[in-house]
Amino acid sequence: MARLVRYALSGGASALTHFAIGLAGVHVLHLRPVLASTAGFLASIAVSYLLQRAWVFRSTAGHALAGAKFLTVTAVAFTINTAVLWTGTELLSTPYPIVQPIALTLIPLINYSLNSRWTFATPTRPTPGRPHAGADPALPTP
C-alpha cells in the first residue's frame, strides 16, 4: 500500500511539473502553448522516471536499461491515450471531458503494472543448486 501512495505522489509531482513548466513557458517565455506543454511533458517524464526509480520502486536497475524500458512504457501510455481519445471523440462523438478521464484512469493502472513488473523489477537470481527460470531442467546446473 505504501508503494501505491508513493506512486500517486510521484504522479502528482510529475503532473505539477508538466503544468508549471507549461505555464511558465506560455506566460514567462511567451512560447506557443503546444511548445510550452511539450517542454513540460518532457520534464515530467524525467521527474517521473527519477522518482519512480529511486523512491517508488526503489530499483537498482541501471539507467540505460530501466530508462529505455520506462520510455517504452511511456510510449504505450501515449498510444493508449491517443486511441481512447480518438475512439471516444471521433468515432463515438463523445465529449472530450467525458473521454479524457477514462484514459487518465487506464494509464496509471497500466503504467504501474508495467513499471513494477518490468521496468523496475528486481532481477531474480537462481538459487544455488536450482535452475533459473527458463533453464532446461535436463541440463546440469553450473
Rank of each mutant, 00 (worst) to 15 (best):
R53V: 13
R58S: 14
F57A: 03
V28C: 08
A54Q: 15
V56L: 13
A77S: 15
A43D: 03
P33V: 04
V28M: 07
V47E: 00
V84H: 07
W86C: 07
L85I: 05
L23K: 11
G88H: 04
V99A: 06
R117C: 10
V34E: 00
A61L: 11
T87G: 09
P101Q: 06
V47Y: 05
L50S: 15
S48C: 04
H63N: 12
P101C: 02
I21M: 02
L92K: 07
Y49P: 04
T79F: 07
L85Q: 03
I102L: 08
G40I: 02
A75G: 13
T89C: 09
A24S: 14
Y112V: 01
S48W: 02
I21R: 04
V73Y: 07
S113T: 15
W86V: 09
L85M: 09
Q52E: 15
T87P: 04
F57M: 00
S116M: 08
G40T: 02
W55R: 08
F19Y: 15
T17R: 00
F19D: 00
A83V: 10
S48Q: 02
F57T: 05
L23A: 10
I80R: 01
S44A: 14
T17W: 01
V73T: 13
V56C: 11
L65Y: 04
V56A: 11
R58C: 03
S116D: 12
T79E: 06
L35R: 03
L42C: 14
Q52G: 11
L65W: 09
Q100G: 06
A39C: 13
L114W: 01
R58P: 02
A83S: 14
A66Y: 11
V99M: 00
I98S: 11
S44Y: 00
S93P: 02
L106A: 00
